[in-house]
């Protein structure tokens, strides 16, 4: 019984060493199809981004010229920006640029879009990365501990808190935290104005409030799922067997309960990363953090279309590449996934 359960866990973690030639061939075929699919998604995304920014009201030339727009200046600028060419031609030119990491130049400043977008994206990755690590480790631990002690005071307290967090949007929680730790007990900065010269201590103090604000909504969901997953595993026969064999409680939790409870969590965690990134956009605005969400919002307000397109495409490309990498990773670890596509 115990043996069987352990095999089930390891089966998901290591490829069988004796994969036949035909199985390898089918895996490669799956890989090629999966990559092709990602490229198709990317093309669809680029068409959507281009179309959405093209149908926005307002001629770009009017936006640039503002009140100085004379018919002659307008016509000259439209020609210069290639706006007199048909949309498909402009789209192809834009895509050719992206292939060389040239996302175009800002309509307002005339500077290349890519460095600005890339730097903001890097800032967002730092925030999202720190938040993800804190959230996953924290909520998995809390979910496990409440699952193990179901019905205890700790369990009931956590249950209450998770329901409160689930119903509190980031901007409400953020405002409460600012009032608490900036106004009432002034120990944290109100704004996360990081820049290239910010020392590591500055990064830490300025990331506390955004991270603590963005975690609870998604974290609470993971706590709830982890708690029920733990409850399911605890009732399994192999846990009872381990106890009967006289293993220490610590060993049972770490070697038997945690790995088995984590299996159904992988999908949940992946899904919630998407939600986390959405929350990051909100806290970036709330704490003036110089990330891609704030950049996107302000660029839309300024009608700086190349900037909007560049930011949207970069976010999309990273999402698609990460998804592809995750799928390939799982397939390498668990050949059954690959075989299904064969």
């Amino acid at each position: 019984m115990l043996q069987g359960a352990n095999t089930a866990v390891t089966a998901g973690l290591a490829a069988e060493p004796t994969a036949s030639l035909s199985e390898r061939w089918s895996f490669l075929r799956w890989l090629a199809l999966r990559t092709l699919f990602s490229v198709l998604v990317l093309i669809v995304l680029s068409v959507l981004v281009f179309a959405a920014t093209t149908v926005l009201p307002g001629n770009v030339a009017d936006v640039i010229l503002g009140q100085n727009a004379t018919p002659a200046a307008r016509a000259a600028l439209i020609h210069q920006l290639h706006l007199d060419q048909p949309a498909p031609v402009r789209y192809l030119g834009w895509m050719a640029g992206i292939a060389h990491l040239d996302f175009g130049t800002s309509l307002q400043s005339g500077l290349p879009v890519f460095p600005t977008v890339a730097e903001a994206f890097g800032h967002s990755l730092i925030l999202a990365g720190v938040a993800a690590v804190v959230m996953v480790s924290g909520s998995v631990w809390i979910g496990l501990s409440t699952g193990l002690r179901a019905g205890s005071t700790w369990d009931r307290l956590v249950t209450l808190l998770t329901f409160i967090s689930l119903s509190m949007p980031e901007f409400v929680l953020g405002s409460i935290l600012i009032w608490l730790f900036v106004i009432l007990i002034p120990i944290l900065p109100a704004l996360s104005l990081v820049d290239s010269e910010t020392p590591i201590t500055g990064w830490i103090t300025m990331l506390v409030l955004p991270v603590v604000t963005v975690i609870p909504v998604t974290g609470a969901y993971i706590v709830r799922t982890m708690r029920s997953a733990t409850l399911d595993v605890v009732e399994q026969d192999f846990v009872e067997m381990a106890e009967l064999r006289g293993l220490t409680r610590r060993r049972i939790i770490w070697r038997h309960i945690l790995p088995n409870a984590l299996v159904p969590m992988i999908n949940v965690l992946t899904l919630n990363m998407g939600w986390l990134v959405g929350g990051v956009v909100v806290v970036e605005v709330l704490f003036q953090y110089p990330g891609i969400g704030r950049l996107l919002l302000e660029s839309v307000e300024q009608r700086d279309l190349p900037m909007v397109q560049g930011a949207a495409m970069l976010i999309g490309i990273v999402y698609i590449v990460l998804n592809l990498a995750a799928d390939i990773g799982i397939a390498v670890l668990d050949p059954r996934v690959g075989r299904k596509f064969a």
Partner: peptide, 18 residues
């Protein structure tokens, strides 16, 4: 100079010593 879009955020920034 720091750009802070919202007036209340500017006030909070001064109160918190930024």
């Amino acid at each position: 100079f720091f750009n802070v879009a919202d007036v209340t955020q500017r006030i909070a920034g001064m109160i918190s010593g930024q």
